[in-house]
């Protein structure tokens, strides 16, 4: 058994078997990460470049740790300190790096579709670590994996995604992933931040956050992406927080226990209050922990299909 795809460009291109295979492989890696020696040599002959055209803390550290735990050699590339600022194109940059015998590319880019474009021009396996407002597949995999870990399954679980759905690649990847695994999804947030026709992805929409919380088993709260909004879509952050922010009081008033997730970085006091983020509802740090195991699984499963 292996993945049906050579690259991980998005969850859109995966099927449920692929996702289950990644989860099962991640289970094994999670076991390895509990051992005194948290390292296996399976990718010791593989070199991986982390190509980051956009800022990142968690994803980048998580990928780099996953690569190191698999014994791979890694190189880090940041657009700001490279020849990109001298005008080099994406293809030229990557072809130059690959000519130094690099086997896999992990990339984040501000343009949606950048990894898809690159995959048509280079032989190496590409893993999308976030492209513009399109997809962030490994985040969705680790989110779903964390839910599966708590409930043993995703089937028929109710997940609400709250916040800036319009600009969020995490939301899109999560919707694809959750739907493929049989979960039910509702998106919620201000009407200006929810794309029209999003129902065509098989999700429900509510503009009332309290209603969404009442319905769900898990709430995945997204960050307001001010850097991607080039026109005012809500009046102030205070107003957003008042109508769409989640706090501990709201969670306590529910008749059931729900889980709170957040892909990070949190704007404390905006989409999520500190008392909610640090409460027992929150599995935010479990998500981060699972991120390494999920990325190890993806790297391991894709590395067998490199050029040789």
């Amino acid at each position: 058994m292996s993945l049906s795809t050579k690259h991980l460009l998005g969850i859109k291109n995966l099927n449920a078997n692929d996702i289950e295979l990644i989860f099962q492989t991640a289970d094994t890696f999670k076991g390895i990460l509990q051992r005194p020696i948290k390292k296996v040599p399976s990718l010791r002959d593989t070199t991986i470049v982390n190509l980051f055209y956009e800022n990142s803390t968690r994803t980048r550290i998580s990928f780099e740790l996953a690569e190191k735990r698999l014994g791979a050699d890694t190189i880090n590339f940041t657009a700001s300190s490279s020849s990109v600022s001298k005008g080099e194109t994406l293809i030229d940059t990557v072809k130059n790096i690959l000519s130094m015998k690099v086997d896999m590319v992990v990339m984040r880019h501000q343009a949606s579709g950048a990894p898809h474009f690159l995959s048509q021009h280079i032989p190496a396996a590409i893993i999308n670590a976030g492209d513009g407002t399109n997809e962030h597949p490994t985040q969705a995999l680790l989110d779903s994996y964390s839910i599966r870990e708590k409930f043993n399954t995703l089937k028929d679980k109710k997940i609400t995604i709250i916040g800036d759905i319009m600009h969020s690649r995490v939301a899109l990847s999560n919707i694809y992933c959750l739907k493929k695994m049989g979960a039910k999804v509702t998106v919620s947030g201000p009407p200006t931040l929810i794309p029209k026709h999003i129902e065509s992805l098989g999700v429900q929409v509510t503009y009332n956050v309290a209603e969404a919380l009442e319905w769900c088993d898990v709430a995945n709260v997204l960050r307001i992406q001010l850097e991607r909004q080039n026109m005012p879509l809500f009046s102030t952050l205070r107003e957003y927080s008042l109508y769409y922010g989640i706090n501990k009081k709201m969670l306590d008033s529910l008749k059931k226990e729900i889980l709170i997730m957040h892909p990070g970085p949190i704007n404390r006091g905006v989409e999520l209050s500190s008392d909610a983020a640090d409460s027992h509802h929150s599995i935010i740090l479990n998500q981060v922990e699972n991120g390494v195991a999920i990325r190890m699984a993806v790297l391991y499963l894709l590395s067998g299909k490199t050029t040789s």
Binding site: M1, T28, I32, P41, G304
Partner: peptide, 22 residues
Amino acid sequence: LDITFYRDDYHTSKNVHLPDIT
């Protein structure tokens, strides 16, 4: 003990070896 991740034929075999429980 599962030895999948310690194999030396990883890149030469056609299929990805899937791990068992350790």
